[in-house]
């Protein structure tokens, strides 16, 4: 009975969380008459893909923001991994106290609200010619991504059995080779999680983008544009499109995100 109650509550919470998503999906797939009625229904009565085809056929108006967002997010997550994998590996080698201090130090950058640093960043970028460029946006996004991906990866590497790495070194690997042949392949799960998270943090980023983009907006900016114009169908269609890549990425990489990847390595 108790279990049943907990189960019921969980389902209820799940539905509550999913309901807005459903509404978004519903609006993006319903004809205007279905939505603008005095008693809108919960189900899709008049199904249409018209809004999607409208968005997709709007040409550069849609494709440029999509391209910019995809490139920015991909580059930002790759760059984040490039920096945070070595950083996190190094941090994880310290003892617990120093590790903790370093993590806190990294997170200090996140304690400053983005709105308050976005303006100085934008001014600096205008001076050095990074304003309204992908490179500039990637750099700005790294401010928010790096602490998080470092944090995830420090956890991953700290949990990595030290003996495996030592074994590789004794088996004839240099330190570098031990990392590339043993540590990294066996940490792919955690690295993937950090990567997806980084992608997500850049993909839906709004504040830096709104300061640093002018002529070439990103997807969230474009969506905001339609929201501010009150275009319900465009904004919810954009919202659906923005949601998709993250789901897709998680789906593709889920085989790396599984527990028990290290089982059999050591006896705990």
């Amino acid at each position: 009975m108790r279990q049943f109650c907990i189960f019921g509550i969980l389902i209820l919470l799940g539905l509550l969380l999913l309901f807005p998503l459903y509404v978004m999906l519903k609006i993006s797939m319903s004809s205007p008459s279905d939505i603008f009625s005095s008693h809108p229904s919960y189900l899709i009565r008049d199904f249409t893909l018209g809004h999607f085809s409208n968005v997709f056929s709007s040409g550069s108006n849609f494709l440029y923001p999509l391209k910019k967002s995809l490139i920015t997010a991909s580059l930002a997550s790759l760059a984040a991994l490039l920096f945070s994998v070595p950083a996190a590996y190094a941090i994880s080698k310290f003892n617990y106290r120093i590790r903790y201090i370093l993590i806190i130090a990294i997170f200090i950058t996140r304690m400053i609200p983005e709105v308050s640093i976005a303006l100085p960043v934008a001014i600096a970028f205008i001076k050095i010619g990074l304003f309204d460029t992908v490179a500039g946006l990637v750099m700005a996004h790294l401010i928010r991504i790096l602490p998080v991906s470092c944090f995830i990866l420090v956890g991953v590497f700290s949990g990595f059995p030290e003996e495996l790495e030592k074994q590789a070194r004794i088996d004839g690997c240099s330190r570098m080779r031990a990392i590339t042949k043993v540590v990294l392949p066996l940490s792919l799960g955690g690295i993937t999680v950090a990567g997806i998270f980084s992608f997500l943090l850049s993909w839906d980023e709004f504040i830096f983008a709104s300061y640093l983009c002018l002529a070439r907006p990103t997807m969230p900016l474009k969506m905001y544009y339609y929201i501010s114009r009150g275009d319900l169908f465009y904004s919810s269609t954009y919202a659906v499109i923005i949601t998709l890549p993250v789901l897709l990425l998680s789906f593709i990489f889920q085989r790396y995100i599984r527990p028990g990847y290290l089982s059999g390595a050591i006896k705990g």
Binding site: P161, E163, Q167, I170, S174, V182, L186, Y261, A265, K267
Partner: peptide, 30 residues
């Protein structure tokens, strides 16, 4: 001298087998 140049083999208490490699590949690794 770095440990990979010492021509030494070591067996750990918790075995430290490479979980992503078969037994053959574990032994072949070095």
């Amino acid at each position: 001298l770095a440990s990979h140049k010492r021509d030494i083999a070591m067996v750990f208490q918790n075995y430290a087998l490479y979980p992503h490699l078969s037994v053959f590949e574990n032994m072949a690794f070095g």
